[in-house]
Amino acid sequence: MLELRLVQGSLLKKVLDAIKDLVTDANFDCSESGFSLQAMDSSHVALVALLLRSDGFEHYRCDRNLSMGMNLTNMSKMLKCAGNDDIITIKADDGGDSVTFMFESPSQDKVSDFEMKLMDIDSEHLGIPETEYHAIVKMPSAEFARICRDLSTIGDTVVISVSKDGVKFSTSGDIGSANVVCRQNNSVDNKDNETVIEMNEPVSLTFALRYLNSFTKATTLSNTVTLSMSKELPVVVEYKIAEIGHIRFYLAPKIED
C-alpha cells in the first residue's frame, strides 16, 4: 500500500512539466526515504534524477519498496487536471497495475480522482558516484535560463568556462559568436540574486544547448540553480525543490574529434 499526500501539489505539476519533454517513460521508485526517479533521455546523453523526501509529504505511507512505471505524457495530462492550489495524493496497491492521483481543493469542497494504468519499463539505472567537483556555480535560475535561451539563437553548443574571474558562456554559429560572463556577486538584499563561484581548478566544458534549454523548464521550481563541473565529466544542473528535495540533470559533454 502506498499513500503519499503532498499539500503543495503544484510542485508535482512543475516537476512533470520540467521532465516530460526529456523523458517519455520512467519508473518512479518509492521507498521509506522518499519518492524518486532516475531516467535517461532516449539518446543516453542526459539523465534526470528526482528526489522528493518522505518528510516533505504531509502523509507518507510506503509499506514496501515499489517501482511504478509511468508514461510521463499521460501523467502530465492527469496532473494538469489538478488546480495549482490543490493537495495531491498518490495512491497505489502493492502489485497493482494502476496508480490513482487524488486532487483536493484547498477548501475541501471538490475532490477528484484520476486512475492511470502503470506500464512495465525496462530502464537502465546508472550508478553515479559521489564526486568532488572542480567548480560549483550557484546563480539565479532565471539568469541561467535567459543565457541558455539567448545563446541558442546563435549556436548549437555552449562552452561553459569557470575561472577565478567568473563563469563564461560562449557560443558561435553561422551568424556570429557570443560570450556572456557572470562574475561573482554578493547580494545583501536577496541571496537568490547572488552568483557564487566555488572553484578548486579552472574548468571548461562544451555542451549541447538543446539539452540545457530543456533543463531550464525546471526554473519554476527554484530561484537558484547550481552547476557542478569537473574536467571530462558530465555537468550536474541542480534545482532544489523547497523543503522537500531536488531535481538534478546530468549532461554528458561534447569533445573535440
Binding site: 535517461m40 539518446s43 543516453h44 546523453v45 542526459a46 539523465l47 537502465e124 539505472h125 546508472l126 550508478g127 553515479i128 558516484p129 553548443t157 562544451t206 549541447a208 565529466l233 558530465p234 546530468y250 554528458a252 559533454p253 561534447k254 569533445i255 573535440e256 574529434d257
Partner: peptide
C-alpha cells in the same frame, strides 16, 4: 566539429 559523449562513457550501469 565536436562529438557528443554518452553517459555510459562516465557512469556504470547499475
Amino acid at each position: 566539429m565536436s562529438q557528443q559523449q554518452s553517459l555510459f562513457s562516465f557512469y556504470s550501469r547499475g
